[in-house]
Design a protein around this nucleic acid. Sequence first.
DNA 1: ATGGCAGTGCCTCACTGA
Length: 256
Amino acid sequence: MQIATWNVNSLKVRLPHVLDWLQQTGCDVLGLQELKLDNAANDKLVAEFAAIGYNFIYNGQKTYNGVALISKFPLENVVLDIPEYDDVQKRVIAATVNGVRVICAYFVNGESLISDKYQYKLAWLAQLEGYIQRELQHYPELVLLGDYNIAPEPRDTYDAAIWEGGVLCSEPERAAFNNLVALGLTDSFRHFNQEDRQYTWWDYRNMAFRRKQGLRIDHLLISHQLIERAQACVIDPAPRKLERPSDHTPVILTLK
DNA sequence: ATGGCAGTGCCTCACTGA
């Protein structure tokens, strides 16, 4: 079973890319972030994905945020948002697929260390940690996938001199990432790949993709029980080369 | 040193993203 994550930066614009990518890869489960669509688009999207053999659920809002799960298999026990956390921003959707708990999240960006959004990010991360801790008690096979907006280590940025200490790379954000790991999760990409310059996002500006100036901020963290089933985790750069691409590209986990 | 691109909607600018 293949499980992937992709921040599409508007599903309205990227729908053809997503449909083509699913048909080309045959990926079983795909978590999307940054749909930028309110829930009025639901019927159209359900029909679009049903036509190529996928179930589709999402948790959206107008203009900003929004997350979705797309799956060949039934999506069971669906939960929207972080339960008991009063957050108007639509950033989380969860479902069980073939016994695997899949939690798709669009983490807060934070803007800068002096922004109110950064304080919101840290508060949101603390809420997420509690949620994942509870979920792990019920679901030993769990994947937390999405746009984390955190580069876990200096090697996950193209230039540490620019990024270290700033938003996406600050100590409190990395501590929050490590807290998730400490719950019993593993960065599945790093489980298989120790290479430098492995990125999932490239700025639209400055020809950053062509110049290989990116960040690794999209991740699939998997529970220890899932490590035993994990066979590969790879970044697929192909969609970033298309016309009008998302600035993020998919990451794909393969389970046996 | 600065800003550079892209998407959305309050749409000819502002806001957000990372």
